[in-house]
Design a protein around this nucleic acid. Structure first.
Length: 288
DNA sequence: CATTTATCCTGTAAGC
DNA sequence: TGCTTACAGGATAAAT
């Protein structure tokens, strides 16, 4: 569910509220939420206890808290929010949320960190950090907010693929941070159809596409992210308001903000794609 | 090798 | 009202 802007909103909140604090106690309330910590939940808790949080970092949709030692080597608490994961900062003693999965208490006795996740597709684990990245993040491409993001290399990578444009945008090993919402919004802004074969993308169209990807992500971040319901909230439980700025995603039947043609919904990989049939005509030879 | 699909979960909304 | 079905912001193992 959360894409780059939503995860970045969470990261900013964690940077403010947990940096410099020392973990005192860890409570795992659902084993599935730490299933990626292969050594098990007891080891997960033991590894966190007594550790100080040094920084909150992110690549794409992955989020992690550096523990103790600065620099490239060390360990981090890695989080992926999956479809419904939340991080919340709550006063100790506040009522447990229905889907509270993991609780971290701190040595200062201050507000605790809670991982809440209805569908449990997300999870936490303690990972080794190599060259500045937790091991499971090594294969994730840089995201458009990364200062070293290389537009031309990504365009070349997209054109090298033998697939459709939207599938390429969603491939986190090509460019990270983009999910179903921002893929549709970017394709709409670029007036491109997601079924377009990647190989036919011109260099100019590629540059336009990455430019609008960056724009939509930046605007969504400024709005605090996109929330349709209480499933995405920041660490204080507040919703973002970028949903009011969506031109295509979830707008089936509503007029395209550019040409007033009704936005169309179509099936895509067990979910949906939203396009303007006039601004984004289907390619003559769509990728299957 | 690259690419596509099926699946992990729970809750909500729509349709009958 | 109740029951059934479709769908939801993601990633990945397994299949093609």
């Amino acid at each position: 569910m959360p894409e780059l802007p939503e995860v970045e909103v969470v990261r900013l909140g964690l940077a403010e509220h947990v940096t410099g604090r020392t973990v005192a106690a860890v409570e795992v309330r659902h084993p599935r939420s730490v299933r990626r910590h292969l050594a098990g939940e007891l080891d997960f808790a033991a590894r966190l206890s007594g550790r100080q949080v040094r920084a909150a970092r992110r690549r794409g949709k992955y989020l992690w808290l550096d523990l103790d030692s600065d620099g490239a080597a060390g360990e981090a608490l890695l989080a992926h929010l999956g479809m419904s994961g939340q991080m919340r900062i709550q006063p100790p003693g506040a009522a447990d949320e229905t889907h509270l999965r993991v609780r971290l208490q701190f040595a200062d006795g201050g507000p605790e960190l809670r991982f809440i996740d209805q569908r449990t597709f997300g999870g936490l684990s303690v990972e080794n950090v190599v060259d500045g990245l937790p091991t499971p993040v090594a294969h994730i491409a840089r995201d458009p907010m990364d200062p070293h993001f290389d537009h031309d290399a990504v365009i070349a990578g997209i054109r090298r693929r033998r697939t459709s444009l939207k599938r390429a945008l969603l491939d986190q090993t090509l460019v990270s941070g983009i999910g179903n919402i921002y893929a549709d919004e970017a394709l709409w802004r670029a007036r491109l159809h997601g079924a377009r074969p990647t190989a036919t993308l011109t260099a100019t169209q590629g540059r336009t596409l990455l430019t609008v990807v960056t724009e939509v992500i930046t605007e969504a971040l400024a709005a605090g992210g996109t929330s349709f319901d209480a499933l995405y909230v920041n660490i204080n439980g507040a919703s973002g308001y970028f949903d009011r700025s969506l031109a295509a995603y979830g707008q089936a039947g509503r007029p395209c903000p550019r040409c007033s043609t009704a936005i169309q919904r179509e099936a895509f990989m067990n979910r949906s794609s939203y396009t303007c049939p006039r601004c984004q005509p289907r390619p003559r030879h769509p990728h299957p």
